[in-house]
């Protein structure tokens, strides 16, 4: 068994093998891989005894469930109105310069993906970014760069 197959099997044991357990299983794969690969979808379909198309149909519906490879750390900058007003464009510009990628791309070392997201629920503290599940409110271009540099130092 591959690592993904093992992970899926283990998660199906934890959450159950019914259709209603699909989301938590997909989310567990996401936490570990940052995206849902074809291999993962096939493995999940097999465990839950549903069609791969059904798994793909569900996964592709949700913005956070990427079906294309993503970096180890997924950065999502809020682009909705108050964060827009408070300067999210400058934050994104600074991150693009630092990581040498454009919005929607992954760094070549696979460490980061840079994305936008809709309102993250911190509008009084915009601009806001999410790195994986971690929230960074009231970021400036400078502080956002510092945060990423910390991530770079870690590993």
């Amino acid at each position: 068994m591959t690592n993904i197959e093992e992970l899926v099997k283990e998660q199906a044991e934890v959450h159950g093998k019914e259709r209603k357990n699909l989301m938590p299983i997909l989310q567990a794969v996401l936490r570990s891989e940052r995206y849902i690969s074809e291999e993962a979808m096939v493995a999940i379909a097999k465990e839950l005894d549903i069609s791969t198309a059904d798994v793909y149909g569900t996964a592709s519906f949700y913005t956070f469930m990427d079906t294309k490879p993503k970096g180890k750390n997924v950065i999502r900058v809020c682009k909705t109105i108050t964060c827009h007003m408070k300067g999210k464009d400058a934050v994104i510009g600074a991150l693009e310069d630092l990581l040498k990628i454009k919005l929607g791309e992954n760094t070549s070392d696979g460490k980061f993906s840079l994305l936008q997201a809709n309102c993250l629920g911190w509008c009084h503290k915009g601009p806001v970014m999410l790195i994986n599940d971690e929230v960074y409110p009231e970021v400036t271009p400078e502080s956002a760069v510092e945060v990423i540099q910390e991530y770079l130092k870690q590993k």
């Binding site: 019914e18 259709r19 209603k20 357990n21 699909l22 989301m23 997909l26 989310q27 996401l30 149909g57 569900t58 519906f61 949700y62 913005t63 956070f64 469930m65 997201a117 809709n118």
Partner: peptide
């Protein structure tokens, strides 16, 4: 997993059912 429409009560239930 990032879908505004899932706040709509019946969409939310579909989502909870794995759809």
């Amino acid at each position: 997993s990032g879908a505004y429409v899932c706040g709509e009560e019946t969409a939310l239930m579909e989502s909870m059912e794995g759809k």
